[in-house]
Nucleic acid binder design. Structure first.
Lengths: 196, 196, 196, 196
DNA sequence: CATGAATGAGAGTTCATTCAT
DNA sequence: GATGAATGAACTCTCATTCAT
């Protein structure tokens, strides 16, 4: 099925509406009916474009890869201090953690857990790899500028992983409402202190 | 409903069978029918004991609080080296991570994500708090014995949290099959190197 | 849910079919399945319009308030004899009593008895009040025309109640197959003889 | 199955408990489970004696034929005034009507309506016939003593029926909470005034 | 293309009834 | 006899999915 321009716009519209459903309800409990109702279109109308919530969700994920890396690339281009760049990134992550209820994060975890052999794993893995890569670059950038002193070149990738894994853990805590601004700060501090 | 001894054993039996279903299928997709079939009992028979998968799962969780802390308490009682105690604990966690497909872990995350205002949160939070507490004790124990040198007394609890949050993050990775023995080793190493 | 014209007709169709089920089976023993089968539609199809037999029955009742009072109003407009008007009404009631097996009457009683605090009580009470009112009017009409001689103006409403209560009692007897044409005639006679 | 004395007492016990369930819940919605629970016996234990609520209810009805006629027989034996005897009976009926919520009356109507071809019809019909008979006797007694003046001997049975049918109608009203002490008095008055 | 009525599969739940202990 | 666990039939209800208009 190749889509007309109108069709593409309708898809976008559906994804937008569906996103707000997923944010509100998570992934598993959402039905096609829920999305039909949120979109105010007909059942048949929705099925024209998507035939399951899974399909919709995968589309949301693949479109949703907005650039979180801007802070890094821009920072390095502008010759900013590496620690500052990282701190900015971590602050951005902190904001997200504190606001996690209003993001699609919970739905993503649900999706990811409920599909063992999932195609999306691809998307998430790729996302993970890219993040490791850009953090690694920034760490190397910091090392080369002598702003990061406590990290050996050999350990850069391990540490990039470390950062992301910690953030992943913090997300889980945040989703369980077991998190405070203070706790986040403390944990991010430990990261920074391992660098300088 | 107060149960006879036989009733209690039947409940145990149901929980056992249900556990294997949850390990195999996760949480959300499991139906009462699935459990009935695994148990080889009648629909009504199951409903005598449990009236939803949620109830069953909560019972599994509350019974399942096995003592993971033995390694700590035993180690400290025996006057072992703190770093060794922690390493043992982390090795134990590593085994679990590598074997995560055969544990109820995935189901727990699904459960936890799909019940926003859940009673179980209690169980998980308590579990979390206890783990922080026992790790903190061990860290203090190590500091007092000069086996842990790079950690200030003030930072003990933060670091205990750090360890658990990292393990949480590793679990998520493990569930996404994005983890290798090597990656785990590297991450646990970072933890240990922050101590000595 | 606002219905299309087609939807309204379908509702009518369902009510018709359901009515015949209720006439045949009474109220309490009727299931949604019974109605689905009578209608020759799918389960889901029925649930689109009604979600319980109670709802269906209430709709039947509220639609079913046909005008039994025509005999009175028409009679008075035409200046007929009051006793004749009443006799006509009572004959009409007699016919219904003798044919009660083929009416929804039994189901109504069942419904009414099985819902202690029911909304429908409203419908039945209103119906009762209206009937008292129209009979009272007719009695007054008869008194004013000197056709009814043995009833004081003060007692008009009491006697209107009397008539209806007697008819109610006759219905119960009729439902128990304890009634004959003769018995009805005798009882209605007693009513008439109290008037002239 | 012939019962031991113990068995007979157990049956009585079950009937007592079941009666209170039927008073509370009506007939149709009562399950064997309800009765088992009220009796605090085992399911099997109940089935030993009764195999359906219908059976239990029929037994309650046949045992329950207490003598409502005492007021008549005693009155006539004592040579009391016929009108007074009738008034006493009607007052007794009035009390029952006002207290109908705490009687098994509602359940009886439900039972009677839900079993088209019922064996119990026998019981109810017999009850009806007996009541007609005893009221007729009293009316005749009153006529012979010149206490009842407005009733021809020929009409005695018709009028006895009239009384019972009216009371039946009042019961229905009472079950619908559409009845007041005043309304009952007015209706019973009409009866009495037809006699003197 | 869009609509929404219609379908039917399948999950949940309750009880009458049986039967081993 | 008494018990209550176990069974399974029957019902309710919800959606994914289709299809005539």
């Amino acid at each position: 099925m190749s889509l007309t321009i109108k069709g593409i716009e309708k898809k976008k519209y559906i994804l937008e509406k569906a996103t707000s459903v997923f944010i509100r309800e998570g992934y598993t409990s959402v039905t096609m009916k829920d999305i039909v109702e949120e979109c105010n279109i007909s059942r048949g109308g929705l099925y024209k474009y998507y035939s399951s919530t899974k399909e919709i969700f995968e589309d949301i994920l693949s479109f949703g890869k907005e650039n979180d890396y801007f802070v890094f690339t821009k920072g390095m281009e502008n010759g900013e201090n590496a620690i500052e760049i990282l701190s900015d990134f971590l602050q951005q992550q902190k904001s997200e953690l504190l606001n996690i209820k209003n993001t699609i994060r919970r739905a993503i975890y649900e999706f990811f857990l409920s599909h063992k052999n999932n195609a999306l794993n691809g998307i998430l893995k790729q996302n993970y790899t890219e993040t490791v890569s850009v953090i690694s670059k920034t760490l190397n950038y910091g090392i080369s500028r002598n702003e990061i002193t406590k990290l050996a070149s050999n350990d850069v990738e391990k540490f990039a992983n470390h950062i992301i894994i910690l953030l992943e853990g913090l997300s889980i805590l945040a989703l369980g409402e077991q998190i405070s601004s203070k706790l986040i700060d403390e944990q991010l501090d430990i990261i920074i202190k391992d660098l300088i």
